[in-house]
Design a protein around this nucleic acid. Structure first.
Length: 944
RNA sequence: GGGCCAGUAGCUCAGUUGGUUAGAGCGUCCGCCUGAUAAGCGGGAGGUCAGAGGUUCAAAUCCUCUUUGGCCCA
């Protein structure tokens, strides 16, 4: 897109605005430089490419010439990790205020900071014989490391190889003395201020320009480190050589180590509006906030001018034309039209890129001057292109002025953590300049004679979600050059884009780095998308076979069973939660809420509990309510997941509603949804009341597991006690049926109060008591834990109770204790402290028979499946078994026959069946019973 | 070297303003269901919350240090 001519023109316009405000200038600056690409890099580009590398860590000496007194024959000691810069050495810099030690070691005399001496000479291998202040060393000459004059002179000067003093010298690293070469910003500045001859041994291609020592011309800079070190060591000028591993900037494009190199460059004076950027950034909502306040804010505080130009061929050409005869006479062109006017007409197939644009020249338009204007050779930093995106993508201000004014700024952007100094900065910097600094542009409200709608003051984005980096399996950053990337196409082919998207968004806080986990994607696909898909399939299957019409009016919400209102309340609550989490830029929380609804509420509870209603077992009204409810729940869920799983959601949506796109729908809103049922569905009381039922169900399964009575075996009764049930606005008792069916018990008895057979205990409420009790809290908690039943109930009844703990007395009230139920005597019980259930596990003969009947049903259903019958096929059954089986059938044959769709009933015979029959099967039942069965499909018409 | 983030079950991650059984999914073990079926469900087991100090009646949570990893910068 940035290649597009319109885009280029917009970028040109923006640059011309910088120029119009005197914020575009040419300078010469020591730049991080890539010798291979032959270009300088901006600071935010440098920040893309730090890598750890091994460099030599060496101490070199500079013997003073003509020094007297203690300093006679003394050698200055400096430290460097870049031996390749040593031939370019021009000076040694000391700090004027530091106290340097004069040291003797091995019969030689050295000058350096005493605190660093042990690192150079070893703990006891030196003696301090005197000291000298940095200021006193200033101006002394020393013997150069190499006799070398073959370099490129970049700064003329009358001094060379002298000691200079400057306060930039630190005592953190090295020796407190710094070897100076023109490859650093400070070094270059000091050369200028001290009239020092600066000569580069390494040129702009990062190679030596002529032979030095044993290094020949053309050697790449770091490749010379070894030879130079060996030479210096042999000549006694190098004291110690070791390796150090440190972080060093590399070219983000080609991974070549950078050098610092003085080069001509064009700059944007961003420091002129730095305060506005800092101020503006405080209005931006960052997730997580510390990125905005800390990392990005810090970066803005330390803002330096943007080195804009690049010495490359490809890119948006810098629209600056300079007078060949007067380098101060230059113009930044704002549009193709302007360029056409200047040069007397653009060619028909004008292309603003190189090389065509380089051929365009014209006579200087500056009054009183003459000469040919020629374009500078540079192109611009592509990060400027990226930051111009909100405007340049619409060819603003040449076109779409209203559109851009309406859209700008973006509500939200999202990019990786590594973009702090890349895209986030370029967007922020350009728009802050344009909307808050460039007053000239907006003053008249017009541009080129036509209205220019004001862009909202501020940054280009109102909120920004910073996402962590995707790491590979072993936690390493993925990169093309390392070859450890997950190829998106492959991953998508395997799982689908939607599953991957869901997995990444839900798999943890967005700003944390994450390993790409293939397994997690499969899980999501199966557990979430699969479950929702199956839920829809269930709906579709029965909506079709039962003839449910989605276009007919749905039953009133109030008239539907509690569980219907419950599930709609749940979907409404999930929508509210998701909506809030998305606005807070916490997508994983949003998706968790949706997942919980889909898997737990919708599929595992609502549909499972309501299955029979869908095939009409509980009457037509109930059936219609169930279909309507499931339809509305799916309708809402699809709208909820659409932004995350656009393809999946839209595909199901098309089937569910028979066309259209889910992406044209509003996100479910629990207050004002397009679906009235959803808008009015949320009911906190209703939702809360189901919770104890689900807990009771779980406890009941736990008990059945413990006593080894399978769910298929009906039990007569269970009791349920809910602590503080009276405080619930809606009674869970409305959901008795769900619990009864789930646990297969005939009767649920709800317990009021706390009858004697429930064992109870009290737990201290640390929140209310903690502050009061102080260090006696432990004693008090123990005491409350042992509290007898009568006292607990006294407190519950509103009485106060005074107790002694740790020598102090405390007055307890009801809220200071938490009532817990421990178990129920005489029943198989279980409790989670809040809900307590007891199962009557006595199995009467009738229950036993019913259990066996269900076992038989189970076997027949399995057998149906084994012989490949369709769900709706009718069968006839011939069955044989012992007397016990027969007595079960005496009572339950009709019910079994109905369940297995055997309209003519079950034919029981005591005689053996024909084992050779294909449909013959022998089954074992519990209690050492067994049956033999032959089933056969029958024609419905003849059977009826 | 500095700044920021993170370290919680075998794995991937949640965990509200500090409050007493530290949760989920996957895996594992045991079991269930069979009219969603190349599906589904339940119940167990599993944690010294990286380590060490500190603050507090009380710390996964707050503070300090150490350590490991990630990102950014010098």
């Amino acid at each position: 897109m940035t290649f597009d001519n319109d885009y280029v023109e917009s970028v040109w316009f923006l640059l011309s605005r910088y120029a119009a405000n005197d914020l575009l200038y040419q300078g010469s600056k020591v730049l991080p430089w890539c010798g291979r690409c032959g270009t300088g890099l901006s600071s935010h580009e440098v920040s893309q490419g730090y890598r750890d590398i091994d460099d030599p860590s060496v101490y070199i000496t500079f013997p003073l010439i003509d020094a007297s007194g203690d300093l006679q024959n003394a050698e200055l000691v400096a430290w460097t990790t870049t031996p390749w810069t040593l031939p370019s050495n021009m000076a040694v810099c000391v700090h004027p205020d530091f106290e340097y030690a004069i040291i003797e070691s091995d019969a030689r005399r050295f000058v350096m900071l005493e605190s660093k001496a042990a690192a150079v000479f070893g703990e006891d291998n030196y003696t301090v014989v005197g000291s000298v202040q940095g200021e006193a060393l200033k101006g002394l000459s020393y013997t150069p490391l190499f006799s070398y004059d073959g370099g490129i002179v970049i700064h003329e000067g009358s001094n060379r190889h002298i000691v200079v003093a400057d306060s930039f010298v630190s005592d953190d690293d090295g020796t407190g003395m710094v070897h100076m070469a023109p490859y650093g910003a400070d070094d270059f500045r000091i050369a200028q201020s001290n009239d020092i001859l600066a000569m580069l041994a390494v040129g702009e291609d990062a190679r030596f320009v002529s032979d030095v020592s044993t290094v020949s011309a053309g050697t790449l800079f770091r490749d010379a480190n070894k030879e130079l070190s060996r030479d210096l060591k042999e000549r006694g000028r190098m004291l110690k050589v070791s390796q150090c591993n440190h972080s060093y900037p590399h070219c983000w494009r080609c991974a070549t180590p950078l050098i610092y190199f003085p080069a001509p460059a064009w700059f944007l004076r961003t420091t002129a509006y730095k305060d506005k950027m800092i101020e503006q950034n405080k209005q931006t909502k960052w997730a997580p906030p510390e990125i905005g306040e800390g990392r990005f804010g810090e970066w803005l505080e330390n803002n330096i001018d943007w080195a804009l130009s690049r010495d490359r061929f490809w890119g948006t050409p810098l629209p600056v034309w300079i007078n060949e005869d007067d380098e101060d006479d230059w113009i930044c062109v704002e549009s193709f039209a302007q360029l056409g006017e200047l040069c007397g007409g653009l060619p028909d197939n004008f292309d603003p890129h190189r090389p065509m644009v380089d051929d365009i020249t014209f006579e200087t338009p500056t009054a009183g001057k003459s000469g040919t204007m020629r374009r500078v050779t540079q192109v611009i930093d592509c990060w400027f292109d990226s930051g111009a995106m909100p405007l340049a993508q619409h060819h603003w201000p040449f076109e779409n002025r209203e559109l851009v004014a309406e859209q700008f700024p973006a509500d939200f952007i999202c990019e990786g953590l590594d973009q702090t100094r890349g895209w986030f900065y370029s967007l922020h910097s350009i728009s802050t300049f344009l909307t808050q600094h460039d007053e000239k542009l907006w003053q008249s409200g017009e541009l080129w004679g036509a209205e220019l709608p004001r862009l909202e003051r501020g940054s280009a984005f109102k909120s920004c979600l910073v996402n962590g980096l995707m790491l590979d399996k072993s936690g390493q950053k993925m990169s093309k050059s390392k070859g450890n990337i997950v190829v998106p196409g492959d991953a998508i082919a395997e799982h689908g884009a939607d599953a991957i998207r869901w997995s990444l968004l839900s798999g943890g806080a967005a700003h944390l780095s994450r390993r790409y986990d293939n397994q997690a994607v499969s899980d999501v696909r199966r557990r979430v998308l699969g479950t929702l898909g199956a839920s829809y399939d269930f709906f579709a299957l029965y909506a079709k076979s039962e003839g449910f019409d989605t276009s007919a009016a749905f039953p009133e919400l109030a008239s539907r069973p509690a569980i219907d209102r419950w599930v709609l309340s749940q979907v409404s609550a999930a929508a509210a939660k998701a909506s809030e989490a998305f606005s807070e830029m916490q997508p994983s929380n949003a998706l968790r809420a949706i997942e919980d609804f889909i898997v737990d509420d919708l599929s595992n509870w609502y549909i499972r509990r309501s299955r029979r209603r869908f095939w009409g077992d509980e009457g037509e009204a109930s059936q219609r309510a169930a279909f309507a409810t499931l339809y509305q729940a799916l309708h809402a869920v699809l709208r909820m997941i659409a932004p995350v799983t656009p393809f999946f959601a839209d595909a199901i949506w098309g089937e569910l509603v028979g066309g259209g796109s889910v992406h044209l729908q509003m996100y479910p809103d629990s207050n004002n949804d397009t679906d009235v049922a959803i808008a009015s569905a949320y009911d906190a009381d209703l939702s809360a009341a189901m919770n104890p039922i689900m807990r009771a169900s779980s406890l009941g399964r736990s008990v059945r597991e413990r006593v080894q009575i399978r769910v298929r075996q009906p039990l007569s009764s269970m009791v349920v006690h809910i602590a503080k049930e009276s405080e619930l606005a809606m009674s869970p008792r409305e959901y008795s049926d769900a619990l009864r069916q789930e646990l297969n018990v005939k009767e649920v008895t709800w317990i009021d109060g706390t009858p004697d057979f429930l064992k109870v205990s009290a737990k201290a409420n640390f929140k209310t008591l903690g502050r009061k009790a102080g260090k006696n809290m432990k004693a008090l908690a123990t005491l409350i834990g042992d509290m007898p039943r009568e006292q607990i109930f006294a407190l519950q009844g509103g009485e106060e109770l005074t107790v002694e703990a740790g020598g102090e007395s405390y007055t307890l009230v009801n809220e200071d204790i938490i009532l817990q139920t421990e178990s129920a005597e005489g029943l198989e019980a279980a409790t989670d402290g809040y809900v307590t259930i007891g199962l009557n596990t006595e199995i009467s003969g009738e229950l036993r028979a019913e259990g066996i009947a269900r076992e038989i049903t189970n076997r027949l259903q399995t057998q149906r499946k084994e012989v490949g019958l369709e769900m709706s096929d009718r069968i006839e059954v011939r069955l044989t078994g012992c007397a016990a089986v027969q007595s079960v059938l005496d009572v339950h044959a009709a019910a079994i026959a109905e369940e297995v769709l055997a309209p003519s009933g079950i034919f029981f015979s005591a005689d053996s069946l024909d084992i050779a029959d294909n449909a013959y099967r022998k089954w074992d039942l519990p209690d050492d019973l067994s049956i033999e069965v032959i089933i056969g499909k029958i024609d419905v018409t003849t059977a009826s």
